[in-house]
Amino acid sequence: MKKSPFIAVIAAALLAACASNQAPVAGNAPAATAPSAPSVATVDVTGSEPALQGGRVSAAQLAAAVKAAPDQRSAQALLNGHSVYFDFDQSVVKDDQRGVVEGNAAFLNRFSSKVLVQGNTDARGSREYNLALGQRRAESVKQSLEVLGVKPAQIEAVSFGKEKPRAEGDSEAAHAENRRADFAYPQ
């Protein structure tokens, strides 16, 4: 950051010098030189992320199973792979998706854990507007959790928009799979 104002000043001087109106080239005058665009530095933050595993308990039985689980680790494992799905352009948690919300609420209430609710959208439309639609879905799930007794401070609602599709392609099935909210717990 410290270097940039210096370079900007010199480069501005070059530009100003080039652009001004002057007499034409004299035979023995030093010739002008074109500036080179500065090269840039690369930052590398490539890392790994944990993969989702398939769910083993049905959504309807999730809350009961979480309450009966012997410990936090096994309870959390039950929640893996369960997402809340949404209709096109909608952020309302449908009745058939309540089991997943209740299972996560049971976990959060029992273990006072924190959770990241991650909203997602299908691949159609503006990236940033989709990010906001995914946020609306995450907020909707957050409110449903709060209704079930989870404290607001336990939940952070964030969005991935259309940036991390679980299903690729333009089929309706792929779009439906991507219209969802996931629950990410601290490892």
């Binding site: 370079i7 010199i10 480069a11 070059l14 010098a17 080039c18 652009a19 001004s20 109106n21 002057q22 007499a23 034409p24 080239v25 005058a29 030093p30 010739a31 002008a32 030189t33 500036p35 080179s36 500065p38 090269s39 840039v40 530095a41 690369t42």
Partner: peptide, 21 residues
Amino acid sequence: SGFWPRLFALLLLSMTAAANL
């Protein structure tokens, strides 16, 4: 029609950053 590039002494910018092309 009066647009002439002004002549000026050579200025070299040294590029130190490691560019990853």
